[in-house]
Measured scan of single mutants.
Amino acid sequence: VKVFRALYTFEPRTPDELYFEEGDIIYITDMSDTNWWKGTSKGRTGLIPSNYVAEQ
């Protein structure tokens, strides 16, 4: 598990995607895809765009 911080707010387009706000901490559990990672924030899990976060 790696810890990342959201650089921007992300509004999901599908139920599989995770909503998060700029500054949120996201725990990444799967980075197997280059563009979409699986992450958890505020008790919810979903896909996030990798270019919206920076490693802490």
Rank of each mutant, 00 (worst) to 15 (best):
V3L: 12
P15Q: 11
M31L: 06
A6V: 03
P15E: 12
S32C: 10
F20L: 07
Y52W: 07
Y8I: 09
A6R: 00
G43E: 05
W37D: 00
K2P: 09
W36F: 08
N51T: 12
N51S: 14
P49F: 05
M31K: 06
I25A: 06
Y27R: 06
E17T: 04
T45S: 14
F20P: 00
I26R: 00
G46R: 01
G43C: 07
E21H: 08
W37C: 02
T34G: 13
D30Q: 06
Y19D: 07
R44V: 11
E11C: 15
T45F: 13
P15M: 09
E17W: 07
L47R: 09
D30W: 03
F10W: 15
E55R: 08
K38G: 06
D30S: 06
L18Q: 00
G23I: 03
D24V: 04
T34R: 14
D16F: 13
W36K: 03
I48W: 02
T45N: 09
A6Y: 03
S41P: 02
F10G: 01
G46D: 00
T9K: 12
F10M: 05
L18G: 00
S32P: 07
D24Y: 04
T14F: 14
Y52R: 04
T14R: 12
Q56R: 09
V3R: 11
F4S: 03
D16V: 08
V3N: 05
Y27K: 05
T34H: 13
M31P: 04
R13H: 10
S50R: 11
I28D: 00
P12T: 05
R5H: 10
I28S: 00
L47S: 05
R13Y: 09
P49R: 06
M31N: 07
A54H: 10
I28Y: 01
P15G: 09
W37E: 00
A54G: 08
N51C: 15
P49S: 04
T14C: 15
Y52F: 12
D33M: 06
T14M: 10
K42H: 12
F4C: 10
E17Q: 14
V3W: 12
K42R: 14
Y27Q: 07
G39Y: 01
K2M: 11
I28R: 00
L7A: 04
L47N: 07
R5I: 15
G46Y: 02
V53D: 02
T14W: 11
G46C: 03
K42Y: 08
I26T: 06
E21I: 07
V1R: 12
N51W: 15
Y19F: 13
F4Y: 14
N35L: 14
E21T: 09
Y52H: 07
W36C: 07
E11D: 09
F10I: 04
W36N: 03
F20C: 03
T29Q: 09
L7Y: 03
D33E: 08
Q56D: 14
T14S: 14
T40S: 13
L7I: 11
I26A: 00
E21M: 09
R44L: 09
F4G: 05
P12R: 03
L7P: 00
S50W: 06
V3K: 12
T29A: 06
P12Y: 05
T29E: 09
T9D: 11
E55Q: 11
V1K: 11
Q56V: 15
Q56E: 15
R5C: 12
D30C: 05
F10K: 04
K42Q: 12
E55L: 13
N51Q: 11
K38L: 15
